[in-house]
Structure formats: C-alpha cells, structure tokens
C-alpha cells in the first residue's frame, strides 16, 4: 500500500541534494518519509528544528532536509545535541543515528542523555550492520549472523536498546519497522511532543550488506521478515511465543522532570536568592 501523498513534506526536503547516497531499495528513505510526516503533522516551525547525526548511512539524512542540520563525528550526535538543546531550549532537536553510531561508539552518551531526561528525540535506524563501511558487525547484529568482521558467524550477544534507555530514564520509547511505515509518523510526533528524552527504534533492512551476507534476500524478503517477527505491544500478555520476535508500538510513556526545564528553574531560584 502506498503511503498517502501529502504535499506537506516536500517543503522539508533539500531537493537539489538528491539523488541521495543510499542504495536502491534501502529502508532509510522510508524512515525519512515517516519522520518528515511526523514533523508536518505537528506543524512545527522549520527554523526551530535542528537535526543532528553522527556517522553512518542513516547519519547522512540531515543533509537532505531543510532544517538547521548538523552532521557530527562518529557516536557524538547526542552529546552535540545536548549542547544545542541546553543552550537554546526552544529548538526542537532530533537525532538521527544508527546501531553502530548509537549503541557502540556513542553508547555512553545515549545512556546519560536518557538519564538526564533531556528533551531530545533520538531516532535510531537499526539495520543490524555497519553499512557505510560495508558490512561489519555492530552491537545489534544478532548472535550467529555473518558480517565482514564476523566471517565465522557473530559470537557476541546483541542487546535491547529500548530496555537500556528505559532503565536509564527515557520517558518515551517506541519501536517500529520499515514494513510498518504507516506507524512511524505517529511515533515520531509523539516522541517530539514528549517533554523529555524520547527514543524511537526503527528496525530496517540493509539488503546490500546484512541481507546478502546472511543470504536473506532483498528488501522484499527482509520486510517480510519484519512483518512476521514484529508483534504489536497491544498483544503483550497474550500467549504469543516471542522467541526471536520483538514488540512494536509505544513501549513506554511516562513523565519525569525534564533537564532543561529543571535547569531554567534552577536559574530562576539562584537569581531570586541573589536578589533577596
């Protein structure tokens, strides 16, 4: 089913920067579409949006969108974003990252931004592999999968990033897939609207490296896999065998004090104390 065309999102694209660098059939474009739709649904002012990324295929996304865009160093997008947001809390700060950028080299920044509950929206495009450097394993490459640096099968365990950021203190957590493209805009919008740290994991296919290395097939087969392995969170509690499967939808929605707001209160309190 084609995503219903809304003229709204075209204005967010830097059309003269196309064609993009991603492989034909890559899932990144589907996620880009979903993010822009979510932004458009909220009707945010373009000048107030900052999109920040690190290094990797997905991290090239900010180059194609007409916001304040910042393509940083490997793993550091969230730390840069922390500076942007704390210095100018009226900006909407969205981070685009990948499984290597976010879970490996940038893992510590992820944990601590979640812990602070700073109002950032992190969208991680999890394709289970390092695509830009042509197929090395990441912390989210499943056990036993093949990669150029795991020629005999990956002997490391992967982990659940959503659970990680949940225990670290994120207040909005969601997951979806490129197959469930229609769901993405809603999750993005809710993530941006949450006053606090929002984390949205999108499972997407990298047929060029992950698919080929693991003989899964092309985008169609990989999206078929997403369809058969994703379980809506609403079904949690029913007796579905979750072996090898994962929940999608809004996994966590909670409230706790947001970092920048708390800091602003601290400023007011110290200044009042100084005056009196």
């Amino acid at each position: 089913m084609a995503i219903k065309e809304k003229s709204g999102i075209k204005k967010y694209l830097r059309l003269n920067k196309f064609p993009h660098i991603w492989c034909g059939g890559c899932g990144n474009g589907i996620v880009l579409r979903g993010i822009l739709q979510g932004i458009d649904d909220l009707g945010l002012e373009q000048n107030k949006i900052v999109m920040i990324s690190g290094i990797g295929c997905s991290s090239r996304m900010p180059g194609y969108v007409d916001f304040n865009t910042l393509h940083t160093a490997h793993g550091r997008a969230i730390a840069f974003a922390t500076g942007v947001k704390l210095a100018k809390p009226d900006l909407h700060v969205i981070i685009i990252t990948g499984d290597g950028d976010c879970a490996a080299i940038g893992g510590n920044h992820l944990i601590h931004a979640a812990r602070r509950n700073i109002d950032l929206t992190v969208v991680i495009l999890n394709n289970s592999i390092y695509g830009m450097t042509s197929g090395q394993y990441s912390p989210l490459t499943p056990y036993g999968s093949f990669a150029t640096t795991a020629p005999y099968g990956n002997i490391e365990q992967s982990f659940d990033l959503c659970e990680l950021v949940s225990s670290a203190g994120a207040t909005y957590i969601a997951r979806s897939t490129t197959y469930h493209a229609m769901q993405i805009p809603k999750l993005i919008a809710a993530g941006i609207e949450n006053s606090g740290f929002s984390f949205i994991e999108i499972i997407l296919h990298c047929h060029t490296y992950y698919g080929r290395k693991n003989k899964i097939g092309g985008p169609v087969e990989m999206m078929e896999w997403q369809k058969s392995h994703a379980v809506p969170i609403s079904k949690k509690g029913s007796n579905i065998d979750m072996t090898g499967k994962f929940y999608i939808g809004e996994l966590k929605k909670t409230r706790s004090p947001e970092y920048c707001k708390t800091y602003d209160e601290l400023i007011s309190a110290t200044q009042r104390r100084k005056e009196s």
Binding site: T72, R76, G83, H109
Partner: peptide, 16 residues
C-alpha cells in the same frame, strides 16, 4: 559523561 561529550556539547551550544 566524559571529555568527548564535553567538547561535543560545547560545539553544539556554540552553534546556537
């Protein structure tokens, strides 16, 4: 959380 994060945050803030 570390000095890499520190300089990153500084550069992000500076851009504003």
């Amino acid at each position: 959380e570390d000095e890499i994060g520190s300089i990153a945050a500084v550069l992000g803030a500076s851009l504003t």
